[in-house]
Design a protein around this nucleic acid. Structure first.
Lengths: 211, 211, 211, 211
DNA sequence: AATGAATGAGAATTCATTCAT
DNA sequence: TATGAATGAATTCTCATTCAT
């Protein structure tokens, strides 16, 4: 805790590059062998720096992982949420088909954004479960997304079957997350297309008033 | 593989009791401080046996954890699935209200069965993500549940909106799992009652033909 | 194989000295109490370094022993073979007495080179028998010596009774080795002088044409 | 030492059979995986008895090995020495050819007697080097053989070039031992036939007066 | 006598982190 | 600031032997 003051915040170009090298090396190794089986010396070796240098930039292994996790979360957020926001604002009509379109667009974009390696992603999910600090980061990021979903849903208020928008937002987010994991990393034999159809049907039937 | 032959299979009553003591001690410690922060010597100490004795019954810490995980899975399965099966067969009419009742019954029972400690459960979920061997066990258990869900859904075929029962079963299971985690261990401020209402609504609207 | 990459190759003077300290400490302990009864922690303690430091330079106890064995082999080779080579090239006449002189010179020099401690030597011999990797090193070194003996014998071709120089070289090497062990570490009561006389007689009678 | 009183000496047929089972199991395992890598529990398991039973018959692992070593030594002695003794006494003439015949007979018989498995034999040789107790047993057995060789040589006194029969006996025994190891377990590419010719030549030239 | 469960000291090894140069 | 050497507590795992039944 007090220690965290120690880690250097690079200002010079060289320092920034070194930090970047460390993060990339760590990411490669976490992907290859997992977080727990990677150690600081290896990361340093892979980044082509001395062990001591590693500890100039990060106080410990976990800090690098947190940095990576934040980037992954941010990466997905930036790629997906932004697009959704834009799409939403362009698409103000509130009839069934257009909303169905929007939901399709969202699911498709999330799936596209999950370009992350299976192994690394599992490591991140596990770490979220095992480490309180990282769990908090996840919750914080999640809150942002939930807020956005609430906003989007409110835009279409009149077409919604559901009154409790907050609860619906949480449930929808969790559902979509789980579905992305199922499609991307799941063990089912069912083809993506079939799953996607049911997923969209489920969301539409739950959310939208049909005529 | 070859090593696994080493683990002793107790024949005497005394040995069976010792193995049980080890499993209980391990479960307590995994719950208290997590799997990764518990070591074999501690488990032995808590079980009031020698370190060597631990290694007579299990080749390593992971093996005890697998034993515990299997028991947890089995425990949930036996407590929930059985009830569902019984309920299903008693309730053959296929009108909307009765099916809604059944879904309510299922969700309620799953929630009741998840009496497991938060910490231990997170450790198990993390382990499923991190360890292939344990992932396989999970997948195997999951397949059984999916098959049961398929059976139940087929019983109510005529009342279902959904044609693709297999896909629906997988999606429903994942959804319910995630919702249980959300309610039991989630970080949302939304009260259980509100969430439950939306969860049931979602499932009914997705599955059932309304009149 | 993959693991062997782990062992640090010292670049700084300090590291080189540490490695040397470890080898010396190990040699002392193997001599004092034997290889099997010495453990890595003891070696580290004797070398005045931390246990971990030992494992920075060697992956395990065996690796230090291999290093020592190679040095012992090389030590004998350098001390003996070189002298023999020099002597051989100075001594080109091929009459009986000069050859007898040469054989005497060789045996005497080998005996002098075996200044190694009895205990350590037995440990090495045992290890050659027990460990394939070390056996291979021995065989490799032996091949070099046999080649040299073949060369020496060929120089004196005309004076030899034996046509099959390769077979003779192998047999002579094994014989000399065994005789050195007998004299240095053997349990016989017979005095070195008597043994040496017979050993030289044997070699001369076997090898040389008498007039 | 005091403990040795504990080991049961079986008198009943059943006990004798159990002891025999243990020795056979140990021999198999020492052959398969070496002495050091075999443990008491494994031996018991292979012999189909309980661990405790093992310790009723032997005070420790080494005792079984000693028993095996003695049997191996005795086995070679009985198969070889006896034959040599008989042959010697039948063959009293002392001319060159008959002695050469005898030497050939001896070498051939020793080679035949070494039917022992390579691995086990190396283990025994290593143990002789590493363990004083076992070394003593070897020395004792060797003394017997040396005495027999002395006796045989004295029988042919008049045909011998060598005056120092004791020294010659020791040297010859060591030489023959080494040659058997070379032929049986050695790493040379040279064919047995070539080696045997040189070995016999060597012994004859060393020992016998030629005309 | 036989069984197999239990012991526990001890060995090998790792690695996050600090420190001397 | 960078390097890489050093630390040493912590952990896993083994196995000869004893003991309770």
């Amino acid at each position: 805790m007090t220690k965290s003051l120690k880690a250097r915040i690079p200002v010079q170009q060289r320092g920034i590059e070194t930090k970047e090298k460390i993060i990339n090396a760590a990411m490669t190794l976490f992907t290859e062998k997992g977080y727990h089986k990677t150690n600081a010396m290896e990361i340093a070796a892979r980044a082509d720096i001395a062990t001591g240098t590693f500890y100039s930039y990060f106080n410990n292994k976990k800090e690098v992982f947190i940095e990576i996790i934040i980037r992954v979360f941010k990466g997905i957020a930036e790629n997906v949420l932004l697009k959704i926001e834009l799409k939403t604002h362009k698409n103000q009509a509130d009839n069934y088909n257009e909303l169905r379109d929007l939901l399709h667009f969202i699911v498709t974009n999330i799936l596209q954004a999950y370009r992350i390696n299976n192994r690394l992603f599992k490591e991140i999910l596990a770490m979220v479960l095992l480490d309180n600090e990282i769990e908090k980061i996840r919750i914080k990021e999640e809150k942002k997304v939930i807020n956005l979903i609430v906003l989007v849903l409110q835009t279409y208020k009149n077409s919604l079957r559901t009154a409790d928008i907050e609860a619906a937002a949480v449930i929808l987010l969790k559902f979509m997350e789980e579905m992305v994991h199922l499609i991307k990393f799941g063990s089912t034999d069912i083809k993506e297309k079939r799953l996607l159809k049911e997923i969209e049907d489920l969301m539409c039937r739950y959310l939208l008033i049909e005529n």
